[in-house]
Design a binder for these strands. Structure first.
Lengths: 208, 208
DNA sequence: CACTATACGGAACTGGCGTTCCGTTTGTCA
DNA sequence: TGACAAACGGAACGCCAGTTCCGTATAGTG
């Protein structure tokens, strides 16, 4: 829900002076308000139109001119970063939450199901992870690595417990789930992610 | 390999006269040659750059001006149609070939593996099937339906034999495999389709 | 209240790409 | 070989989306 993540609140701009002293200046009230509006608009627009939605749409939805938008985010990618990082963080949180479950296998699977429903609700994550041309890697790198690490933890535990096969990598698990979600976004196929994810989970289970 | 599919040879243009008689006129020799060159170039370019490759690139590779390209294919989509239909047909053929195998389960799985390797070699199929915005549906509709039907046949047989679970649709199988291939095209993930497809196959197997 | 740094808006610019247009070239046929 | 329809090439056009620019508005301060 919340898009702010502490340091992201951005009510201030920091400037390094020549002596190395850091002076902080409050943002003007309207600027703060507009920044919020832009983030909210972007979150909504990207969620249901995907990352390819034109910037103008975001600006209009925020009730702001494009110029203003660019004052806050120098690039469309910078805006992606803000939004996608949030989403990825939500997924990291889900993964961490799932990791406390008793059954390590179910912990992984329930996370993957969560991932699926999150992703099908918010087009942007999948776009960020699955569409070539949007390079998450460069901008949201660290959060993406966090996510990968969190999934690896789930996977390792599940593998160690014997619930899940041990010949699959974290990246492959991500690929399978993201792939399924991406396919589900294609209206012509007429499928939803859930059953496909169930198949993936079964495929991950260790054969008895 | 071969891109020609009988009626596609297109060395002639048919015209309906006022009396309803159909007169056929030979294409000029250079036109025939150029059409071939364009198709070959498009096949190569789309295969390794995907369907988003600019038309100019195709034209240049074919050693032809854009005007000439447009004389042969009135639209970029028309060119897609020519290429993608061929690829889809290849897949239909693979599916039909697989369907003669003794073990119905393995018939399906070996086709899915073939699909995976075809797809990872030729970016365009996956683009056509997985990237929103390219509507295969409208142009290659019938061939796509043929493919879907062929896969359904494999799936039904596999299900009937008890080798494969019976709660999965053809579209879901396609979604899973296409999704995995699509994910594999993302260089940042660093995965190949094969193991992911193996997981999908295991997921499709009926639990014993 | 006046003054200025800060922020705003949106028209204009840019680059990429699909498509069109038209003057030139060339294969074909008598 | 001459004539002409057919085909060619590539410059030019239009659209779309990201980005920049700059004249105008306003929050914050003394």
């Amino acid at each position: 829900m919340s898009t702010a993540s502490g340091a992201d609140t951005a009510t201030a701009t920091s400037t390094a002076s020549s002596e190395g002293v850091t002076s902080v200046r409050r943002m003007r009230a309207d600027a703060v308000k507009n920044r919020r509006r832009i983030l909210d608009a972007a979150e909504a627009v990207f969620a249901d139109e995907g990352l390819s939605a034109p910037i103008d749409v975001v600006a209009e939805r925020a009730g702001v001119g494009v110029g203003t938008l660019y004052r806050h985010f120098p690039t469309k990618e910078a805006l992606f970063e803000a939004i996608v990082t949030t989403r990825l963080q939500e997924l990291v949180d889900s993964a961490d939450a799932a990791s406390t479950a008793d059954d390590p296998g179910e912990a992984l699977f329930s996370f993957l199901r969560t991932f699926g429903s999150q992703a099908s609700a918010k087009h942007d994550v999948i776009d960020a992870l699955a569409v070539a041309g949007v390079d998450v890697k460069s901008r949201c790198a660290s959060t993406f690595e966090d996510l990968q690490a969190a999934i690896r933890r789930l996977l390792d535990r599940a593998t160690a417990s014997g619930a899940v096969r041990d010949d699959v990598t974290t990246a492959e698990v991500i690929g399978l789930v993201v792939g399924a979600c991406h396919a589900a976004e294609q209206p012509s196929l007429g499928v939803t992610p859930d059953r496909m994810i169930e198949v993936v989970c079964d495929g991950l289970r260790r054969r008895v």
